[in-house]
Design a protein around this nucleic acid. Sequence first.
DNA 1: CCATGGATTATG
DNA 2: ATAATCCATGGT
Length: 200
Amino acid sequence: MTTSWLELPSEAVDEAARLLLGWRLTANGVTVRLTEVEAYSGLGEDPASHAHRGPTNRNAVMFGPAGRLYVYQIYGMHFCANIVCGESGKAAAVLLRAGAVVDGLEIARQRRPAARRDTDLAAGPAKLMQVLALDKGANDTSVIDGTGPATLSPPAEPAGTIAAGPRVGVTSAHDVPWRFWISGDPTVSVYRRHTPRRSG
DNA sequence: CCATGGATTATG
DNA sequence: ATAATCCATGGT
C-alpha cells in the first residue's frame, strides 16, 4: 500500500496532491471524485501560496494539522477549498480544482443550473464547492473524522494516468508543475495560459 | 472578450 | 483611512 497523503511531510505536498486524485469527497448528499488538484506550500519561495508570507488570520488553517479544509472566498462571490497537508507549523495544502459527480446527481444539477453537461457540474474550484453546498462555514473542519460537513473517502478504483502542468492563475513559478489531473478526464477544465488581468 | 463582487492585504 | 489584488464563473 502506498503512503497515505495524510502522513506525508509538508515538503511532499506535491506528492500528496497526486495521491488525492481519485479520492471522493461527500457533502450534503453529493459525492464528487477528485479529478484535478493543485499543490501549494508555505515553505520556501512560493509567492503563489496564500501562506508564503507567514501566518495570517485567513490562512491560519494551512498551518494546522492535515485533514482539514481551508476555505477562502475569491472575487467576493466564490468559495474554493483546499485540503491541508503536512505537519502542523509547516503550511501546505492541496486546492481542489475539479471533480466528477458520482453520487447525488439530481441534487447537483439543481445546485448548478448553469451546467449544461454533467461534466461541467464540478469542473472548477468554485463549481465544486457549489455542488457540495459548502462555503466559508466549512473552513477549519475535518474531512477525515466525520465531524465536519464533508467527508473524504478512498478511491473505489485506481485514478489512472496522472498528468502534471503549471498551476492556474499563477503568473510566477510557472516552472513548478504543481497542477495535477487525471489524464483524459472530461471534467478537467482546459488550461488557460493565464488570466489576462492586466490590459494587454 | 467583459461584468460581477467582497474579503484580504499592503500602505500611510 | 485608501487602493490594488485575487487559486473564478457566466454570459456576451
